[in-house]
């Protein structure tokens, strides 16, 4: 598919379950990309290995989900990853925010892996056998990501004064973006009603409880208050950061139209 306009049209008309898989796949792809930006810059060699490993797992999940999403429309994982523009990407805003310092990356991973763990656990009960099988495997992977993120959230929150302050700043900055993870649109509501996907709203309670327990243990207090809850990622309305990420990610692919790699 070299015609970007035709691709746009196709992704707009994806079947709801394919569109749902695309959103989850975009979350994983963009998370993987951000994590991979840490490589050669991590605070220690063990963290280089761990962050690469998590990035690799997320990339594997993205490939599976993008493959699933494009299959019935004849779109490959690479067409979906490299030939869509930012308005066609469906990832949550949380995934695309620039990395910031290690505390920002860890807090984001903590929020995100807690969410993915609940989501994939719910998805194992999907009426779609393939998605259910995928979720069972992915749930094990994100279990490790969650464990890693929790262990560092505790160390940063309850480490030194500096690490505590940095973790607190990351918490305040990232918290508003977490609401979007549990938003429900018409398509997702219909899929949930058919038993194909978990109802996102049903994940919000357990998520808040699990996150709250760890934040308290990490001496990071309770969730910040405030009414600003940015969203729009699932509808292709992103932050300004995504355009740069995609420009970089897609640069080689787009410079050689029609090439195979």
């Amino acid at each position: 598919m070299s015609n970007a306009r035709a691709l746009t049209a196709l992704t707009k008309t994806l079947k709801p379950l394919d569109g749902y898989a695309l959103a989850l796949g975009d979350d994983a792809l963009i998370s993987s990309h951000r994590l991979s930006e840490w490589l050669t810059y991590a605070p220690d060699l063990e963290e280089e290995v761990a962050l690469a490993n998590i990035a690799l797992d997320q990339l594997g999940q993205a490939r599976h989900l993008l493959g699933f999403a494009g299959r019935s429309s004849g779109l490959s994982e690479d067409e979906l990853a490299y030939q869509r523009v930012d308005r066609e990407y469906r990832n949550s805003l949380l995934a695309e925010l620039p990395n910031g310092d290690f505390a920002h990356t860890i807090l984001r991973l903590f929020f995100f892996s807690t969410y993915q763990r609940l989501l994939y656990a719910g998805l194992t009960a999907s009426a779609d056998g393939e998605l259910a099988a995928f979720a069972a495997k992915a749930a094990v992977e994100v279990g490790y990501h969650h464990e890693y993120a929790v262990s560092w959230t505790l160390r940063l929150g309850d480490g030194t004064e500096e690490s505590h302050d940095r973790a607190a700043a990351a918490l305040a900055e990232l918290w508003p973006y977490t609401a979007e993870l549990f938003a429900v649109d018409e398509d997702v509501a219909a899929l949930a009603a058919e038993g194909l996907v978990p109802d996102p709203e049903s994940l919000a309670g357990p998520w808040s409880e699990q996150v709250g327990t760890v934040l308290a243990q990490a001496t990071l207090g309770t969730a910040p208050s405030g009414t600003w809850r940015p969203s729009g990622g699932r509808a292709g309305l992103h932050t300004e950061a995504l355009g740069y990420l995609l420009a970089e990610m897609q640069s080689v692919h787009r410079a050689h139209p029609g090439a195979t790699w």
């Binding site: 991979s36 930006e37 490589l39 290995v49 690469a52 990339l59 993205a62 490939r63 490299y82 970089e248």
Partner: peptide, 25 residues
């Protein structure tokens, strides 16, 4: 890593760079 032109190549490169960190350790 951030510009690999296909997802398959990106995965291969990520795994390789991870292996190098592992070799260092």
């Amino acid at each position: 890593l951030t510009r690999a032109p296909s997802l398959r190549r990106k995965a291969i490169l990520l795994a390789k760079v991870q292996d190098e960190a592992g070799h260092g350790l």
